[in-house]
Computed example of a mutant assay.
Amino acid sequence: MEESNVGRNRIPTPPDHSRGLILLLVALLVVLLFWQIRPWLFGVHDRHATPRAITPRGDLAEHEKSTIELFRQASPSVVFITSKAVRRDLFSLYATEVPQGTGSGFVWDENGYIVTNFHVIKDAQAADVTLADHSTWPARLVGAEPDKDLAVLKIDTQGRALPAIAVGTSSDLEVGQQVFAIGNPFGFDQTLTTGVISGLGRVIQSLTGRPIEGVIQTDAAINPGNSGGPLLDSAGRLIGINTAIVSPSGAYAGIGFAVPVDVVNRLVPQIIRYGRPPRAGLGVIFFEDYIVRRLGMEGVLIREVRSGSAAEKAGLRSARYDSRGRMAGDLIVAVDGQPVRNSRDLYRLLDVREVGDRVVLSVWRPEGKTDIEVTLQSL
């Protein structure tokens, strides 16, 4: 007899998992409920909790009072600078001003002259100055001294007298003195940081490649946006302009530099008068220092003497090749008896001279050493 196929062709019924799913959901609800009531079960919460009684602080420490007063006195003189670029639409030719960068500065006098770093505004086509009261004014460029990273702006305050910053000196500073920096790091305006003078007589390089001598080193926090702002002593006097930092990341790393106020106080009035300070020089072009070193020399080798220059009138010579194909020319090795090992030494010695001053150059020539007097000219 054949077996029936009825049972064999029956479609199997899938297992019913709904019961397990329901049990899982119930377990989750129990866990969540337990988590909610856990604090009460274990006595963590207190329904009668109230704010703590305030402990009387007492008077501020004297150094805190002096810092607060210093900021109150100096901060109205510190400004926020926004440099702007002008962009023109190619189709409509409509020009718009677009923010390009920010920096700091300070009020030089009540007439609206503002001092900052040259690198803050060097690529700008326009600039705005925001005062401590948050009013914003369009600024005009008065002039600059790129070799010292200085620039002066002017705002028209419509007869309103601005609070000029108090000016101090930098020649009598000591390592260890407390200092204060006010500026706009990362756009946070009116920011105060404190520190000490970490070093004096440092040398940094300006955008033009010329050295800035006598720079103040500080550990007061200086970040992008602080550039152009004031460095103050404990009396609230300007002792430098915060200019540069040393940092692998580009942010504060404990080493900042400020151009000394004695340089600022000498050059800013000249910028206001002339647009750029008259700079004393020789009227020559030098070879780069690395070329001089390759030639086995030490000093500053004159490449070219400009026609009609003070150097030409004094008898200095341009470089040339002798009959043997060797470089021959005037190698400056001293100024008024002070040694010149490279171009930085020469710049340092000429920077403190004025147009019309006479200096004696010690010069090596193929025929020997000679002293030549030069009357410095305006560059």
Rank of each mutant, 00 (worst) to 15 (best):
N117M: 00
H119M: 05
V120C: 06
D123T: 13
D123S: 12
D123R: 11
Q125D: 13
Q125S: 13
A127R: 00
D128R: 13
V129Y: 00
L131A: 00
A132Y: 10
D133Q: 04
H134S: 15
S135P: 06
P138Q: 08
A139C: 04
A139W: 04
L141M: 14
G143V: 01
E145H: 08
D147W: 02
L153V: 04
I155A: 01
D156N: 11
R160Y: 01
P163K: 01
A164H: 05
I165H: 04
V167K: 14
G168N: 04
G168W: 08
G168A: 05
S171G: 06
D172R: 14
D172S: 13
E174G: 07
V175Y: 02
Q177A: 01
V179Y: 08
A181H: 09
I182M: 03
N184S: 11
F186I: 11
F188C: 05
D189N: 12
G195A: 10
V196H: 10
I197N: 08
I197P: 12
V203T: 15
Q205C: 07
G209R: 06
R210F: 12
P211F: 11
P211K: 09
I212P: 03
I212L: 00
I212V: 05
V215H: 02
I216H: 07
I216Y: 04
T218P: 14
T218L: 13
T218S: 13
I222T: 09
I222R: 10
N223I: 13
P224L: 09
P224W: 07
G225E: 10
G228Y: 02
L231M: 09
L231W: 12
D233M: 08
D233G: 06
L238Q: 02
I241F: 09
A244Y: 11
I245S: 10
I245R: 10
S247R: 14
S247Y: 10
